[in-house]
């Protein structure tokens, strides 16, 4: 069942058409990735979906409520983690959580229970008395997530959540998000510049110049836009020329010969045929970065 459906969504700023009639849907409980280069229209779309800005045309249904008509209801069911911290810098973590949590109309005891829960999930117990301004970027991000989870949203929007945090923090943030998602059946709507973060998504939509240029599962997109490479180690000196003569796309580094192949059957047949000519091998799949770069470059060339 879809929790978000977007039909012909468009938004312009004066003469500039930032988003040009895009349509997509997000399945309930899934991790959905919305990707695109800078200036593609991602932020414009997210700002509208999170009820921050109005849009020009199209129909958007979020958790059964029509965007633009039932925004108040939508706001109750979404949580947003922004790129930049949006809590009060001069207040402590506990004060920030109390104040922002109070905006959802919970009773005092219910709010306390919810704060205790998100504090445990995000492991920020020791930070409660600390002022938000005096925390590291990683700590602030954990508090931001706690704030976004306080009302147990059905949809969690993550707008480049890993920007400015180190790799270790990024990993712990993702563990936290994935665990909460599984436990609560929450839908996660992600935009990110770290393509590897999108590899676990159930569906990826890629946008460029305000239009969707492709969508699918990470596997489908990688298959479509990346090649698989077979790396051969310890080869005999004549092998490279031989492979090229056979019309294979092959190159060499000091360590290995790299052969580009796409189909699984071709790879198996190739390895069987040349198994006596190399000492070991490795099959290298295309990465999410490769997929994204290739797709966006194709789009740029097409324009």
């Amino acid at each position: 069942m879809d929790i978000i459906t977007v039909n012909n969504f468009a938004k312009s700023y004066g003469d500039f058409r930032a988003v040009r009639g895009i349509s997509f849907s997000v399945e309930e409980g899934s991790l959905f990735a919305f990707l695109g280069p800078n200036g593609a229209g991602k932020s414009t779309t997210i700002e509208a979906l999170t009820t921050l800005t109005a849009f020009d045309s199209g129909a958007v249904i979020i958790n059964g409520h029509r965007l633009g008509k039932e925004d108040h209801e939508i706001r109750k069911s979404i949580g947003v983690v922004y790129q930049q911290g949006v809590l009060d810098h001069q207040l402590t973590v506990a004060e920030n959580l109390w104040i922002r949590g109070s905006l959802y109309g919970f009773s005092r005891s219910e709010l306390k229970r919810r704060i205790d829960e998100v504090v445990e999930i995000t492991n920020i117990g020791e930070l409660l008395k600390k002022r938000y301004a005096r925390m590291s970027g990683g700590q602030q991000r954990r508090v931001d997530i706690a704030r976004a989870l306080i009302h147990t949203p059905k949809i969690l929007f993550l707008d480049e959540p890993s920007t400015g945090v180190d790799a270790q923090t990024r990993k712990s943030i993702w563990e936290m998000i994935r665990n909460t998602q599984k436990e609560k059946g929450m839908t996660v709507f992600l935009t990110t510049h770290y393509m590897e973060e999108a590899k676990d998504a159930g569906k990826i939509v890629i946008i460029a110049h305000g239009e969707i240029i492709d969508q699918g599962t990470p596997f489908e997109l990688k298959e479509k836009y990346t090649s698989t490479h077979v790396l051969l180690y310890g080869t005999d000196p004549a092998l490279l020329d031989e492979l090229r003569k056979e019309g294979l796309e092959a190159g060499q580094t000091d360590a290995y010969i790299k052969v580009t192949m796409d189909k699984k059957e071709d790879i198996i047949a190739f390895l069987q045929k040349y198994q006596s000519r190399f000492e070991s091998f490795e099959v290298e799949m295309g990465t999410m970065d490769d997929m994204f770069i290739d797709l966006v470059e194709r789009e740029e060339k097409g324009k």
């Binding site: 108040h72 706001r75 979404i78 947003v80 922004y82 930049q84 009060d88 922002r100």
Partner: peptide
């Protein structure tokens, strides 16, 4: 400091 974003996306 874009705190308004958070307030506007909450049911306030």
């Amino acid at each position: 400091e874009r705190i308004m974003r958070d307030l506007k996306s909450s049911p306030l």
